[in-house]
Amino acid sequence: MIAFRIDRRSGVATYLQLVHQVRQALRLGALEPGDRLPTAREVVAAVAINPNTVLRAYRELEREGLVEPRPGQGTFVQRSLSRAAAGADSPLRAEAVVWVARARAAGLEREDVEALAEAVLDETFYVAPADRAATPAPAPGPTPSPERVVRRSPQSMEEDT
């Protein structure tokens, strides 16, 4: 089971906060396939949000194939997001540690490292829409990834409903 929390000041849409928290739990292994998600009623009683928001978050997770509603029983986790390759003792992590240490030795601050990593990530994971020439981020375009969508950005609403 997972306990949700809502940050009302974050500016992130409430349903997205729920989606993130489920994904996070899936990554960390706190939720595993077969686990039941709390019902909308249980969630709203605890965090006092609109039940439609919970249903919307669950629909989003279902669309991503992470969970599956079983009529009369609830919503169940279908697959995990935890990956051995991202684990604490994976070789990839060890390489990243080395890379960060070199960056630091080269005189980069934390923010410089983050910006560099982000730029590389954006370039690597960017998917061009069919009707537009692929230009690298940060040109205004489709949302890079659902996690990064905040309600303030005008694009955020396009991807749902």
Partner: peptide, 24 residues
């Protein structure tokens, strides 16, 4: 909200606390 989840009740709520309405 629990009542709404259970019975689909229509709610009209007035409040001064705008941030609390946002998630509701």
């Amino acid at each position: 909200m629990e009542e709404v989840a259970e019975r689909g009740t229509t709610v009209v709520i007035s409040s001064h606390i705008l941030s609390e309405l946002e998630s509701v």
